[in-house]
Design a protein around this nucleic acid. Structure first.
Lengths: 193, 193
DNA sequence: ACGGCTTCTTGCCAATTGACAAGAAATGAG
DNA sequence: CTCATTTCTTGTCAATTGGCAAGAAGCCGT
């Protein structure tokens, strides 16, 4: 697997010149994760800053009752890492697990910092990733407050239909903030309409 | 008003030396906002990176029905700005309004960038602000999924009781993701218990 | 102090959702 | 292939919540 896609991805940050893009890509290491394998488990410190080229993953936490709650889904072409644990060097409260076999590129925390140092333009990329993640989460929060469960379901179905091919419905239900029972009923009702 | 509190706040970032802290603080300008005045309105580009020393504010958006939805409350000692609009230079979808008279310190987007350039250590501070905001929002998202409305109310009451002295209940209700009617009922039920 | 506006509470009813449990269907390991 | 496990659906019932509307209480500007 070549680093083409990775370089293409870095390209979205216009401040970064082509030469620097290649230099940055040089620092990434290849990684494969097989289905169900964990990229990060609760209690560990997230040490990988990962660009995923192929495959799907999900992040999940446990609520006070010990139930799994899906906090995010990751599709190909995304950067994946647990922000708080990675930057604050604290134990993660989340798990990140592969839903399918995955292939991608990663750098470690130390590598990222040394990249920030040697190629300052990469900082812009790092910041853009943070800002994007933040904006996305904010939009999801707003939809959680203003939309009904059915609307949230329809929205996810429209924007990320692939998720439904790779994640079980009960996993998707907790992401939407409802029980699997409710999701099942919502889907049933929509067939009628 | 002296810049003591601002400097003290910058101190939380241990990577920043005392001398640099003072240098950073020198670049902040004083600002006062009177009650109900807007720091940012929908459609404008957020241009202020604000450290609030006294006073309370709230951020709110409009849902598809045109109703106001409170997205955040800001207490003294916090940095306030709309991340996406500020960094991406895009029109804000949110409003930020003072709940009380406020006093604080701000720098503009241009000033922030030049500070990043002249005092690179300030970048760490900027990143920490982003990471903190992200972590906070994630926690709120999880509570929105796993906790009942009553639990979310109790939690806010415990962690930010001051909010209840400065914001009307209907504003707080939309922050909690419920209607003012529901919040009123929850409060009534809690008196009984 | 007055009038008007906003905020808050409460009642009624309908819709949504969760808890629990049972059974069908699909999946995976050996 | 077979058995065990997981996933998904469905039913019943109770609890939560929203929509709507009316009335009380509080706040603000003149």
């Amino acid at each position: 697997m070549s680093k083409e896609k990775l370089i293409e991805y870095l390209r979205n940050e216009k401040q970064i010149s082509p030469v620097v893009r290649t230099a940055i890509a040089d620092n990434f290491n290849s990684i494969t994760i097989s289905k169900n394998q964990f990229l990060l488990t609760e209690g560990k410190i997230c040490n990988e800053y990962l660009f995923m080229e192929k495959g799907y993953l999900r992040a999940f936490a446990h609520d006070t009752g010990g139930n799994e709650v899906t906090t995010n889904f990751y599709c190909p072409g995304r950067v994946i890492f647990e922000v708080s644990s990675f930057f604050n060097r604290t134990r993660s409260k989340e798990n990140i697990q592969a839903l399918t076999d995955c292939e991608g590129w990663y750098i470690t925390y130390e590598q990222l910092n040394s990249l920030f140092h040697t190629l300052p333009e990469f900082r812009e990329f790092g910041r853009a990733m943070l800002v994007n993640g933040f904006t996305e989460l904010k939009a999801r929060m707003l939809s959680m407050i203003t939309e009904t469960a059915e609307e949230r379901y329809q929205h996810l179905l429209k924007t990320s239909p692939e998720i439904f091919q790779h994640a079980p419905l009960k996993t998707i239900a907790s992401y939407l903030g409802i029980t699997d029972t409710s999701l099942s009923r919502i889907r049933k009702d929509l067939v009628k309409k």
